[in-house]
């Protein structure tokens, strides 16, 4: 039975803005596309997928500085000690709720962004040794390009590991703690019972996100053009 919209509005609070949600699911899609295109040898698709990832990562970094409260790094980046305390409390059964990323989740976000950036960066200089090379591969020697190609492959395994940890953590919250983190990342809204009592979320206007996205896409396009020159 569908919940009454009025009741739903009273029980659910918007925590994630549209840019964060779109970013999250775009990354999921682009990661799958990048893997599939590389595996099947569709390297032009792989290039476009990688550059789109680059644009989105640059956007996310900027959005982490000027975006909505729950998107900002300062809101979810905590000291290692705080992360350790949070995990300790979690294991002990503590029920501490966060409107955005919890300290462990925040660490995962930063780790994934860093690793994905490293993956995109190495991909720009990589070559497949046959008929394709990254747009900036000619800026370095063949030997360096080949080494970066090897690192590009290794980082992919690291990404798989981090994604697995991420999925396991989300599953833990869902199946053990009863806190569904997936659905709010779709709708943007979360049930009040899984949120702190006091909420002060400020959402940044969408046009700023569009502006940042345009700049990020422009940088990625510029990188792509370097390969065609």
């Amino acid at each position: 039975m569908r919940p009454d919209p009025q009741t739903h509005a009273q029980t659910h609070v918007r925590v994630w803005d549209l840019p964060v949600r779109l970013f999250h699911w775009s990354i999921v899609f682009l990661l799958c596309l990048s893997w599939f295109s590389a595996d099947q040898g569709y390297m032009r698709v792989h290039l476009v997928s990688g550059l789109t990832l680059l644009a989105l990562l640059l956007f996310r970094i900027a959005w982490g500085l000027v975006g909505s409260t729950t998107a900002r790094f300062r809101n979810f980046l905590h000291s290692p000690r705080r992360v350790a305390e949070y995990l300790k409390g979690l294991a002990g059964g503590d029920k501490i709720f966060y409107a955005g990323h919890n300290p462990a989740g925040g660490l995962m976000v930063v780790a994934l962004i860093a690793v994905l950036l490293a993956q995109v960066a190495t991909g720009l200089f990589a070559n497949d040794g046959v008929r394709f090379s990254g747009p900036l591969a000619l800026l370095v020697s063949e030997d360096v390009s080949t080494r970066l190609t090897g690192i590009h492959g290794l980082i992919f395994d690291l990404i798989l590991l981090l994604v697995w940890c991420h999925v396991v953590a989300v599953g833990f919250y869902l199946l053990v703690k009863g806190d569904n983190l997936i659905w709010p990342m779709v709708t943007g809204k979360k049930h009040r019972s899984y949120l702190p009592a006091e909420l002060n979320i400020v959402f940044t206007r969408l046009y700023i996100a569009l502006l940042l996205l345009a700049v990020s896409a422009g940088i990625a396009a510029w990188v792509m053009i370097q390969g065609d020159l």
Partner: peptide, 14 residues
């Protein structure tokens, strides 16, 4: 896919 504890929170951590 409602986010309340109806479907979830049934498993022990172990």
């Amino acid at each position: 896919m409602e986010d309340r504890a109806g479907l979830s929170g049934r498993l022990s951590a172990a």
